[in-house]
Amino acid sequence: MAISNRGVMSNTEWRSPKGRLIAVIYFLILTVAAVFVLFPFLFSFTAGFKTSLEVYKPGFHLLPEKWNWKNYADAWQRFKMVRMFVNTAIAAGGGVLAQIIVSTMAAYSLARLRPIGRNVIRALILITMAVPGIAYLVPRYIIMTNLPLIHVSLVNSFWGLWIPYACSSFMILVLTNAFEQIPKPFFEIAQVDGASDVRMFFMVALPLTSSLILVLGLLAFIALWGDFLWPYLILRNSELQTVSVRLFTLTRSFPINLYLAGSFIAMLPPTIAAFFLSTKIKGGLTI
């Protein structure tokens, strides 16, 4: 008989005096962890209301003397935060889309279409997983400033982000595995019905792995949303900069209370998304 409702401890154990003590200890430790996690959020939220003189005042005072709502309005307008968010959404969204298109096509070919030399190609893709991207940052940057053959610079262009973002050996690897694990009869029935390989890609392979693709896309979006070094090198024009790049450059020239307010605003969208998507992420992290 399957047991569905217990942890390391059974429910009766959990309700015994000893179990209750353990529960209280667990709860306290988790609460401490929660406070530690939330503290920077809380700190930037309240510091955003202070005057910059008050932020620098020594001693522990979390709450501002006066709640200056104007700081948040100022940060929102002077940092052009709408622009910032739109740029980040374009960069990350385009990157994820490119990644999904490139990876699903390559994975389908590797898993189903048996190209000659597929083992070499697989090995080459696996190598890029073993070599950290940071180790070839410099030549990659030079290539982006002067594309071979066409001699175009992609500095200050979203293409300079989308092109590197499109390459994900991880996504190709996971999707190749997934396509290989689709039971053969799905394809064979389609074949009997006269479906071509291209048609089977759209009608069999993609629909059967759509939830996996969604999770992979979500994880990629989170990673690209917070990317810093590459956008910092590519997007020099402040009108194009993403949240990370813009806030970093702004801290040099704006008062502290404003950029703490701006930082808090920048933390809000992912936080709200987290509570909506928590079930999705939970289910999908192990593929």
Partner: peptide, 18 residues
């Protein structure tokens, strides 16, 4: 679970500035 995952979601740079 959602709470401890929160810092993963916010851009690293923003967390660092704070």
């Amino acid at each position: 679970q959602t709470l401890v995952y929160l810092p993963v979601l916010i851009p690293v740079v923003v967390g660092l500035i704070v």
